[in-house]
Amino acid sequence: TSSHKLRLYERDDYRGLMSELTDDCACVPELFRLPEIYSLHVLEGCWVLYEMPNYRGRQYLLRPGDYRRYHDWGGADAKVGSLRRVTDL
């Protein structure tokens, strides 16, 4: 099985509160109590970021690497509604 891990930060450049995720999350704002995510670091696996909860809205593919600001993943703003692991490519 492949492993997945990413870290979410409330501010750009990996500042502020950090939360780690290793499984799908249908509602990021509810789980982490963060209305917006300004940076993230994908440590393992690929993920799909959705701008709205319950895997809706615009989708962004996140490969392992650094995303210091939301425009690094192509986002128009810092809204992160849900995240899902990519298990098949």
Rank of each mutant, 00 (worst) to 15 (best):
G74N: 09
R15L: 09
G57L: 05
Y38I: 12
R7W: 04
W73R: 06
Y60T: 10
D23H: 08
S19E: 13
G45S: 06
L83F: 10
M52L: 13
L8G: 03
M52Y: 12
L34C: 13
V86K: 09
R84P: 05
R84G: 04
Y55P: 00
G16E: 06
L31C: 11
F32R: 08
S39V: 02
S2K: 12
L31M: 11
L21D: 12
C27H: 09
E44S: 14
T1I: 15
Y9F: 10
W73H: 07
Y38V: 14
I37R: 11
A26I: 06
K5A: 06
Q59N: 09
D24M: 01
Y38N: 09
Y60C: 01
E10N: 07
M18A: 09
L40H: 00
Y55F: 14
E36H: 11
P64C: 02
A26F: 03
G75Q: 06
Y60F: 15
C27P: 00
N54A: 05
R84S: 01
W73C: 05
C46L: 12
V80Q: 04
R63P: 08
T87D: 15
T22C: 11
R68L: 10
R33T: 14
V86E: 06
D13P: 03
L61T: 14
P64F: 03
Y9G: 01
C46Q: 06
R56S: 10
A26Q: 10
Y70V: 13
R56K: 15
L8P: 02
E20T: 10
Y55C: 04
R11N: 11
A78N: 10
H41Y: 06
Y38W: 13
G74E: 05
R58S: 05
T1V: 09
P64M: 01
R68K: 13
R63S: 13
R11W: 06
V86I: 14
L89Y: 13
L17H: 14
H4N: 08
S39G: 02
V42C: 03
P35T: 14
M52C: 11
G74F: 02
R33H: 15
Y55M: 00
R58P: 04
P53V: 06
D24C: 03
T22V: 12
S19G: 14
